[in-house]
Structure formats: structure tokens, C-alpha cells
């Protein structure tokens, strides 16, 4: 714990964890919500498809949306600047 808590007080770690929580919630909630809302309001409500057809199209769109969100997730993780702590510094810390 003595190691963990200072790590979470670190600003970079905090922003990483915050972003992680937001993206994780988005990737869980958005596809499920979009699937059922698209079925109810777009395909059944506006286009007037049958329940079976509309759930199929809504599901396909939900899966596509999942991959778009995943793409954003990976992009955000990729763009996160590589921290200055390199392996050499870790060795120095261990020596200290």
C-alpha cells in the first residue's frame, strides 16, 4: 500500500485512471443503449420495420459502434505520451 497510494497521487496516473474509467463506462453503456434505443425509436418508430428485423439491424449497428469506441480507446492509449520514466531510471531507483 505504501507504494500504491503515492502512485495514485501522481498526476499522470490520476489522469490515466480517470480517462480509463470514462472510456470503460462508455464502452459498456453506449453499445447496449444504442442497440435498444435504435430498435425502439429508429427502426420500429420511424422506419416501421418488424421487431425481428429492427433488432437485427440495431445489433449490427451496435457492434459497429463498439468497434468505433474501441478505436477511440486505442487511439487515446496510443496518444498518451510515453512517460519519461524509462528502464534506466527504474534501475536508478532500485539502486537508491
Amino acid at each position: 500500500m505504501e507504494e500504491l497510494i503515492p502512485n495514485f497521487r501522481d498526476r499522470e496516473t490520476q489522469t490515466a485512471v480517470k480517462r480509463l474509467v470514462i472510456y470503460s463506462l462508455v464502452i459498456i453503456v453506449v453499445p447496449l443503449l444504442s442497440m435498444f434505443l435504435l430498435k425502439l425509436f429508429l427502426f420500429e418508430g420511424i422506419f416501421g420495420y418488424s421487431s425481428q428485423d429492427s433488432i437485427l439491424y440495431a445489433a449490427i449497428i451496435a457492434v459497429v459502434i463498439v468497434h468505433i469506441v474501441l478505436g477511440f480507446f486505442v487511439y487515446a492509449a496510443w496518444k498518451e505520451e510515453i512517460t519519461p520514466r524509462t528502464a534506466a531510471e527504474e534501475k536508478e531507483e532500485k539502486i537508491d
Binding site: 500504491l4 490515466a16 492509449a77 496510443w78 498518451e80 512517460t83 520514466r85 527504474e90
Partner: peptide
Amino acid sequence: ARPDLVMK
């Protein structure tokens, strides 16, 4: 060791 890499 590297909690800052948690997003990746």
C-alpha cells in the same frame, strides 16, 4: 511498477 500504463 507502472500504474501510468494502465490505459494501455
